[in-house]
Design a protein around this nucleic acid. Sequence first.
RNA 1: GCGCCCGUAGCUCAAUCGGAUAGAGCAUCGGCCUUCUAAGCCGACGGUUGCUGGUUCGAGUCCAGUCGGGCGCGCCA
Length: 560
Amino acid sequence: MKDALRELLLHALDTLRQDGVLDASVPPFVIERTRSREHGDFACNAALLLAKTLGRKPREIATALVAAMPASKLVARTEIAGPGFINFFLSDAAWHEAIRRALHEGAHYGHSRSGADRAVGIEFVSANPTGPLHVGHARAAAIGDTLARLYSATGWKVYREFYYNDAGAQIQNLALSVQARIGGIEPDDPRWPADGYRGDYIKDVAKDYLAGATAVAGGEQVTAGRNPDDLDAIRHFAVTWLRREQDEDLRAFGVAFDVYFLESSLYVDGKVQQVVDRIASQGHSYEADGALWLRATEFGDDKDRVMRKSDGTYTYFLPDVAYHLSKWERGYKHAITELGADHHGSLTRVKAGLQALDIGIPKDWPQYVLHQMVTVLKGGEEVKISKRAGSYVTLRDLIDMAGLDATRYFLIARKSDSQLVFDIDLARSQTNDNPVYYVQYAHARVCSVHRQMHERSIVFEQHEALKHLDRLGGEHARTVMVEISRFPEIVEAAAASHEPHLLAQYLRELAGAFHVWYNAEQFLVDDEGLRNARVALAYATRQTLANGLGMLGVSAPESM
RNA sequence: GCGCCCGUAGCUCAAUCGGAUAGAGCAUCGGCCUUCUAAGCCGACGGUUGCUGGUUCGAGUCCAGUCGGGCGCGCCA
C-alpha cells in the first residue's frame, strides 16, 4: 500500500522535474502511517525535505506535488497540512484490497521477495556443550530463530548456524567434573576440580558413563567406556551426552539448525593456522613476551590482542575469526551473529581480525544482534537457581513452567537491547493479562465462528463474498482492515531492522482491533451479503494472525 | 578510569532509519453476558520522555555534558 503511494509521488516528482520546477535529485522522503486519523491514513514529508534544497516554502512545493499526482482509486483525497506534510486519505477500496490480498495469498500473506534468494547465515545460541542451555540461550534461540523466520518470509535463503567449542579448557573442566563425580566426589569436597561444573546434571552424565550408556548427537554415537581413568573417553562421552541434551531442548523449543560448526574442525582443516599466517604475512602481527599479537589497535580496538599464547595454544578469538572467515568463504555476503551483550567485547576483536586478513571483508561485516540479560520472576521474586543446572535457570525450566508458546513470545516481545523481565506467573496465566493468550484467543474465536457456520450449514463463497466488501461499515471493521494492511510492512521492518519484537507488538494490536470488532458486531447475520463480507474480514484476520504467529514459532490454536 | 547498552504513566513496555496532540497492557475506579467463547468489550484516572545545554521548520529519537542502572575491559571462553 505504501509502495503504491510511493509510485504516485515518484510520478509527481518526475512531472515536476520535466517542467523544470525541480532539479534531478530525489529526496529520501518517507511515507508513513499517521498517528492520528485527522492527518489521514498516510503522510509524506517530501515537500519538507525539498524545501531545504530548493529554498522554497514547503507548502508551495506540496501543492505542486499534489497537483502533479496522477489519480488513483486508492486515494480518496489528499490534504496539505502542518508545516507541509502531504496527507493521504485512502478510499474504502484500498482497505478492501487488504482483505483480498490476505485471502488470496493465504499462508504467503505478509511474505515478500525483497531478499531475492540471497543467502544469509544467522548464527545464534552457540553454547558450549558443558551444561544445559540457560535463559540467556533461550532468549538467543527465540531471537535468532524468529529472525531466521522473518528473513525466510522476506525471500532470503536462510542458514541457521550453531558454533560450538568442542575442545579447550572448558571441555577439560567438564571432563574433570564428570570424572570427579564418577569417583563419588561432591562439589564441596576439597578434591573437587578447581573450575568444575557443579550442577546435578554432571551426576547424570557420570551415572550413564558408568552404566555403559550410549549417547547420540551430531551424527555421532558414543558408548561410554566405563573406565574412570580414561579422561579422553569421559570427555568424548560427556560432550556427546550434553549435545544430545541441548538438541532435545532446542527441538522442544521449535528450533532446528542447518549447520553445526565444530571449533575442532578449524584446527583439523588448518583454518586457524591459515588465519595466523595470513595476518602475519600482511604485517598485522608481532611477537612479544613469547606470544604472537594482533595489532588490533590498527583496526579500532583499544589494545592489541594475543593470538597465540606463550604456551603455543591459541586464544579463543582466533578460531572465532577463522569461523567467520569460513562463513565469508561459504558465500554469506550477509551474516548475522546473535550474541549475549556480555560478549560484546569480542566483537571488536573478531572484526579487527577479519580486517587484518586484508581480503576485502567489509568493515561492517558481520552484523551483530546483541541481547541483554534476562531476569526470571516467579511469585514476585527473582528465580536464580535451577536444581538441575545449579546456578542458573534453564531453557527447559522455562518451557516446563510457562509452555513453549508463552516462552517464545515473551522472549522476543521486548527489544533485544533492553533487559528483559520474564514473569513466569504472567506467562502461565490464562487471562487477558497475558498477551500470548490474547492473540491466540482472537485466532480461536474466528475458528469458532467457522465451526458455527458449519453447524448451521451456512455456506461461504469467498469469490462471492469479496464482491460485497462495501457492505462492511463502521469504525471497528475499518480498524481491523487497516491493521491487516499493515502486516507486510511490519514483517519487512522487523526483518530489516532485526527487531522481532515489532511483530509481537503488532499481533497484539491486530488481536485487539479484532476483539473490539467482534464484540461490537454479530458476524452470522441473516443478510447474506453482509454476513459474507464480515466472515471474509474475519477469515482475513485469522490468516494474518496465523501467519504472524507462525513467524514467531507460536501456535495458532483452533480452540482454547 | 575506558568502552557498549538502557533510563518514557505507579508497574511492564511501544513509539514505523528526525515528524504533527508521546501510545498500549497491567494496576486502581466505574460500567457491559437470554446474541458466533466475558480467556472478551466500553469508560475514567494517570507524563516537564532522568537532568542541562546544543543542532533545525520540527527532538523521546541526533550531538555534548551530567546523574542513575546493567554488562564488558585476561596469554579465560
